[in-house]
């Protein structure tokens, strides 16, 4: 017990004791969590299970939850299919997602801080106009945006795929909400040291915002990776397909290639799963930091 207290650095009013009630409640909580986790993982299992099945098996009346055999040759088939630029698609998506995430985090973090902290008489108006962009369904301004981008000669280019996705009302909104509750005394300390807004932002605010930056990076990266409508319109040629566009080929109108569809879905989310599990620890640490500060 003594070690526990010294570790937590804080005096606790109650010593944690194991009572029957606590054990039951812990079992209930873990039980619920495990059941829910199984439900959440089920679709992923289906992707793999159907991805490693034969085309006929997926839609056959004899379909069973645990298949008789797994066809791992489907994986080589997928990667060696000359009609499906699967590897190119993964690389294009990585390129687009990395650049878009970097750009978006930078632009929106700056704007979010400005909107939250810098006293400017129009800042509320501007904030609401940023929010407005959240409420406009993108499918609707789609054609004008396409015409603008094509007038820049950006169709079938990397900048055409990346740049329009950088300016996000959503990310700006979340950054602003975060900076609103950023402790003032830290910034005040910087001000006493003679720093301006710019200096405070880079030397004090950014280093203390690791949690939110990694959290929003993950969200932005996922959104960029999963974007479909825009890459479909701008990345017109097979050399510029992103992975989502490549996968949509398995749903083309004459021949739904289901085992490749399921398998490629599973493979396409694999990088995100890895990224998330790596950043997960970092995000948690980031949140703990900000929790201590409060």
């Amino acid at each position: 017990m003594a070690t526990l207290v010294s570790q937590s650095m804080r005096p606790r009013p109650h010593k944690p004791k194991l009572t029957t009630g606590k054990v039951v409640s812990a079992i209930l909580r873990y039980g619920t969590l495990i059941i829910m986790a199984l439900f959440f993982l089920l679709p992923f299992y289906l992707m793999v299970r159907n991805g490693l099945a034969t085309e006929m098996d997926i839609s056959s009346p004899q379909w069973s939850f645990f298949p008789g055999s797994l066809h791992f040759e489907n994986i080589t088939e997928l990667f060696s299919d000359p009609d499906v630029p699967f590897v190119d698609g993964m690389i294009n998506s990585t390129l687009v997602a990395v650049l878009q995430t970097t750009g978006q985090i930078l632009v929106c973090m700056l704007a979010g801080y400005g909107l939250a902290r810098i006293p400017y008489r129009w800042s509320n108006t501007i904030f609401y106009s940023v929010l407005l962009t959240l409420m406009i369904p993108f499918a609707v301004i789609f054609v004008p945006v396409y015409v603008i981008v094509s007038s820049f000669q950006w169709v079938n280019t990397l900048q055409g795929l990346v740049v329009p996705g950088i300016f996000s009302g959503f990310t700006t909104f979340l950054f602003r909400q975060f900076f609103l509750s950023f402790p003032h005394e830290l910034e005040e300390a910087g001000r006493v040291d003679g720093l301006g807004y710019w200096g405070i932002f880079w030397r004090i605010v950014v280093p203390n915002s690791g949690g939110i930056i990694s959290a929003l990076s993950v969200i932005t990266f996922i959104a960029a990776w999963n974007a479909f409508l825009w890459p479909l319109a701008v990345g017109q040629d097979s050399s510029a397909y992103t992975i989502q566009v490549v996968i949509s080929a398995f749903m083309n109108s004459q021949n739904v290639n289901m085992h490749e569809l399921f398998l490629s879905t599973a493979i396409a989310i694999l990088p995100l799963v890895v990224i998330f599990f790596i950043l997960q620890r970092f995000i948690v640490e980031g949140y703990k930091q900000s929790g201590l500060k409060g």
């Binding site: 789609f142 054609v143 396409y146 007038s151 169709v155 017109q236």
Partner: peptide, 8 residues
């Protein structure tokens, strides 16, 4: 349809 309205 969209491309016919644009510049490429």
């Amino acid at each position: 349809n969209t491309a016919l309205l644009g510049s490429s």
